[in-house]
Amino acid sequence: MKIKDISFNLLARKAGGSRGLCVSIGAFVVRLRTQEKAFLRTFSLLYQDFQISTDELVDFHIDMRRPSGYRRWLKAQVIFSIDGHTPFEPFPLDHAMPLFEWGLNWCIARRAHQYLILHAGVVEKQGKAIIFPALPGSGKSTLSAALGLRGWRFLSDEFGMVRGSDGLLQPIPRPVPLKNESIQVIQDFSPSAVIGPLFPKTRKGTVAHLQSPRISVEQSRQLAKPAMIIFPLYQSGAETTFKSLAKHYAFLKLSSNAFNYEVMGLTGFERVRDIINSCACYNLIYSDLDDVIKQLDAMITQEGSDDL
């Protein structure tokens, strides 16, 4: 059963109860407990196609609660807590959604060392995945989101989760936090895109979340094989330019981009090495989304066909 299949009242009753609302997000199950209706409404919109989980082991037990004590009277705030621990300072109550997303990122990056976790967007077509590793501001979120809106399978805009045992990519197609100008860019790019409320003045400026594409969510347990690594850089007015990268250089770029390369030890080295050896590696400078997607469509069809 999906989140959108039950009424909001029932959803709120579940999330408000002691057993919480358990949602399947990629390979993880999150138990969310909250009384905050406004937050839950946004959550239920952005996560509408995600499965409500029953009879599965919960990985993260997250509560979104108001602080207790005197602080609750000063200013409406919300606290993210996991297993009773509160790793962050409270956020303003109306920023509960970005706090939840940020907190869940933190939980995954800290614990899920069964994966090499790249800081990357990931999309897939014809069984071939493209990894877009990059720093924030490079446009990897916007690019991955745009590809997701044009029929590519969207795996993630943030975490390239490389399974330690076999190097396959585990999808985690969560809503995409679009920042500042990107919000309008995506709205113009695809007028039917569902974008949640605007959150002004976060640490990253104004943020709004793009609802995850339905098909991608439904295929979240289907892993993908990496075929290309593209380091994107958005440059206003630039022509779409792909530049091939030397293997050793791509290795250094990819390993230093991972959240837990050091923690993964030898496995980390082997996974990066295998990805580099099996993928074509490029630097990409772009400004026109439609043009990049056209070229990527052509490249992915070409990719690997020489070997046949």
Partner: peptide, 21 residues
């Protein structure tokens, strides 16, 4: 071990082995 239990053990063991190294 159920698969997900194993995943928790693996994640934790990776960190422990890193600290040990």
């Amino acid at each position: 071990l159920p698969e997900k239990v194993m995943a928790h053990f693996q994640g934790a063991q990776q960190l422990v082995e890193y600290r040990k190294q």
